[in-house]
Nucleic acid binder design. Structure first.
Length: 704
DNA sequence: AGCACGCCGACT
DNA sequence: GTCGGCGTGCTC
């Protein structure tokens, strides 16, 4: 007899990833990755067989699995390997990682039926009432509906006496979508075609391929030709996108070219829609355009993975468990499946470029195609008494709105004013729970809001320090800029976008003349009637204290350049001689790369080390620092090859009344694994201390 | 974590 | 002898 290691769906048993079940001989054909129904106490649960073991010696009294669940496709061993890897490498709980990839949209309904037996026994009034009512078989719910509250003790007593019987029925319930927005809307009559030579690309498929093509259009044509090639070979194709908007754009591009249906898979689908796509991916040859989660679909004949904008920071999934880097996981999936993977970019990430060129871990194809956009740098140091804009930008805005071209303004500051200061004593109003200035929001009922914990309060009437009552509403946020623009360009439509807007609101974008937004608007910047883009203050991006910010800013600007259809990009900055500004201005990836790599090498930042982060968090600052120092001491003693920094305040270092300190580990040899750090944290932690350690392995940024 | 089961006190 | 509330400990 064999034994199945099963991970249950949405049933967490503390400290346990698996439960063990015996596999009855009748199910001996069941394989690793199969979905099954298993008993748990008196109930039944859905689970996946994660492993199959030979029964050794005396295995306790294992329950047998109930049945195979035929409604959903099995996971397949490459996917199981992938989940194990994601759990292990990033230190995620296996239970949670597995549950993250299980399909929702299917559930078991357990009905408990009760019937009276044809016997005569002594009964109390309550028992008799239940007994009589159960002359016909009923579920517990039906019984309760008929005679009101029934205590479990009454039923227990009746069963003990042998007066009634119970029976369980399992119903598998699947959700079905009403609308089919998850599928391409129009299907082309025949395969489209572009003049593209795939030879160069197809011959370098033995390793991941970094495809460096500046123009988005050109890149997408290559993707299409690859799709056609693999689909016609009978394979499924998976496309990954950093945002839903980009995904849908690519869907539009494909719709005129592909004569078969293709499917979307992303977070805005309903549960039923996502479930449908999940099943299609597991059973048919198909084309799927997905956000990162598509990496965990149960494909059975995947032919190639194509990652668009591989440098995009949205692939870094670190906010919640399971934490992972989408691009790295994509490479792993391709490795486990034994299939090619393309990492496409208009501005490759430093790390992946280094992998390709210096470490020869990736193949590399560059199709040079310089995009010449007019880039204008405004040196803000030379602008005196600026109102909201320098005179050049203002003139250009006027030029554009007059010829009905859209003005797009990128400003990375939410709210109206970014700080409120007392004129008399200089006090800046701070969130009482976080060490972070409160932001004034004009539009949301004129409140002060903390951007870290969501705390809100009314605007101040009196300074808590000096009792003064004059305040400066300082700093320019998107709301303030919007208000200025509305006032100044009265005849034109001004639109502000700051959180990811609903996709149906797109008509608002079409109508607007001037659009102000945070970096969330990036995917919308490809408008046909775009005139100019103004980066309101580039320093807000570059000078965030995080080693990855120059790269992110550079990549973002290059990305925008690759699809922006307007004539000019204006960068307003106080640091016009910064290397990012110079590289953008001179259109030179090489200039940026050399400078950035030199900088990173001198400080042993990635890609010249693996960077790990431990955040120490707790309500007692002293305790947090002490626990952090202890941790550092242990690390330094045990691993002399590591460079360990901190504990240092992790900005903002007070959030929701918890102090946060950061320890950074530069791991040049790549010797540290999440498990090692987890163990050290456990060993180092003083018993009963209220300090929490959050471990992030192989990070690409330090300010999450 | 969720949930059945046993224990116990109140009540018949 | 029953009923219902509550705490505890187990789930393959």
């Amino acid at each position: 007899m064999k034994i199945a290691k099963v991970i249950l769906f949405e049933t967490y048993i503390p400290g346990r990833d698996f439960l063990y079940y015996s596999i009855p001989d009748e199910f001996s054909y069941i394989e690793i990755g199969s979905p099954v129904i298993v008993p748990l106490k008196k109930s039944k649960k859905i689970g996946y067989i994660w492993d199959i073991l030979e029964a050794t010696s005396i295995e306790y009294n294992l329950q047998p699995i109930h049945t195979q669940l035929t409604e959903i496709p099995p996971l397949g061993t490459p996917l199981i390997k992938l989940v194990n890897w994601v759990s292990d490498y990033y230190g995620n709980s296996l239970y949670r990682t597995a549950n993250y990839i299980f399909p929702t949209g299917i559930e078991l309904e357990i009905k408990r039926y009760l019937t009276a037996k044809d016997v005569a026994v002594d009964m109390t009034k309550k028992q008799e009432k239940v007994f009589i009512s159960l002359f016909e078989e009923k579920t517990l719910e039906e019984l309760k509906k008929e005679i009101g509250k029934v205590s479990e003790s009454v039923i227990r007593e009746l069963i003990k006496k042998g007066a009634i019987e119970e029976r369980y029925e399992i119903i598998v319930k699947e959700k079905t979508p009403r609308k089919t927005v998850f599928q391409s809307e129009k299907i082309s009559d025949s395969w489209g075609s572009f003049e593209i030579d795939l030879e160069n690309i197809l011959k370098v498929f033995n390793k991941p391929l970094l495809l460096f093509v500046e123009s988005q259009e050109k890149r997408w044509r290559i993707y299409f030709e690859l799709l056609k090639y693999f689909y016609q070979k009978g394979k499924s194709i998976l496309f990954l996108f950093p945002t839903i908007k980009t995904l849908l754009k690519f869907g539009e591009f494909l719709s005129g070219l592909v004569p078969v249906p293709f499917y979307f898979y992303h977070g805005l689908l309903t549960e039923a829609q996502a479930y449908k796509v999940y099943k299609i991916a597991g059973t048919e040859r198909t084309i799927i355009l997905s956000t990162t989660k598509g990496l965990f679909l149960p494909f059975n004949n995947l032919g190639i993975i194509i990652v668009e904008q591989e440098e995009n920071e949205f692939y870094d999934m670190r906010e919640k468990e399971p934490k992972y880097d989408g691009v790295k996981v994509a490479i792993k999936r391709a490795e486990f499946e034994g299939i090619p993977i393309i990492l496409g970019s208009s501005s490759p990430s430093i790390g992946d470029f280094h992998q390709a060129i210096s470490k020869k871990m990736f193949n590399f194809v560059r199709i040079p195609d310089l995009i010449r956009k007019k880039i204008t740098i405004i040196d803000l140091r030379k602008i005196k008494n600026e109102d909201f804009f320098d005179s050049y930008s203002l003139k250009r805005i006027n030029d554009m709105v007059r010829i009905k071209k859209k003005v797009l303004i990128l400003l990375n500051r939410l709210g109206f004013s970014t700080y409120i200061q007392c004129v008399d004593c200089g006090y800046i109003f701070m969130c009482p729970h976080c060490r972070s200035p409160l932001v004034f929001h004009q539009d949301e009922d004129k409140v002060l809001k903390c951007h870290y914990c969501g705390f809100t309060s009314l605007p101040p009437t009196i300074c808590p320090v000096c009792q003064g009552y004059n305040f400066i509403f300082g700093g320019i946020g998107t709301e303030k800029l919007e208000r200025y623009l509305v006032k100044t360009f009265k005849k034109f439509k001004v639109l502000r976008i700051d959180s990811e807007i609903e996709l149906q609101d797109e008509s608002l974008i079409k109508e607007a003349d001037i659009i102000v937004g945070t970096k969330m608007i990036e995917p919308w910047l490809d408008l046909e009637d775009a005139g100019i883009l103004i980066v309101y203050n580039l320093d807000n991006f570059i000078h965030i204290p995080d080693f990855s910010m120059p790269e992110k800013t550079f990549n973002m600007l290059n990305r925008i350049k690759s699809f922006f259809k307007g004539e000019e990009i204006i960068l307003r900055t106080y640091s016009p001689s910064h290397y990012v500004v110079k590289a953008i201005k001179s259109n030179s990836y090489g200039t940026f790369l050399n400078y950035e790599l030199k900088l990173r090498k001198s400080l042993f930042y990635p890609p010249f080390s693996l960077l790990h982060q431990i955040i120490v968090e707790g309500s007692d600052e002293e305790e947090v620092v002490d626990e952090g120092k202890k941790m550092v001491a242990i690390l330094e003693e045990k691993y002399t090859d590591l460079e360990v920094l901190g504990p240092a305040p992790f900005y903002p270092y007070l959030v929701k009344d918890k102090f946060r300190y950061q320890i950074l580990i530069k791991d040049k040899e790549g010797i540290i694994e999440s498990r090692i750090l987890k163990n050290i944290c456990e060993d180092s932690k003083t018993p009963f201390s209220n300090v929490k350690f959050i471990i992030n392995v192989d990070v690409k940024e330090t300010n999450l």
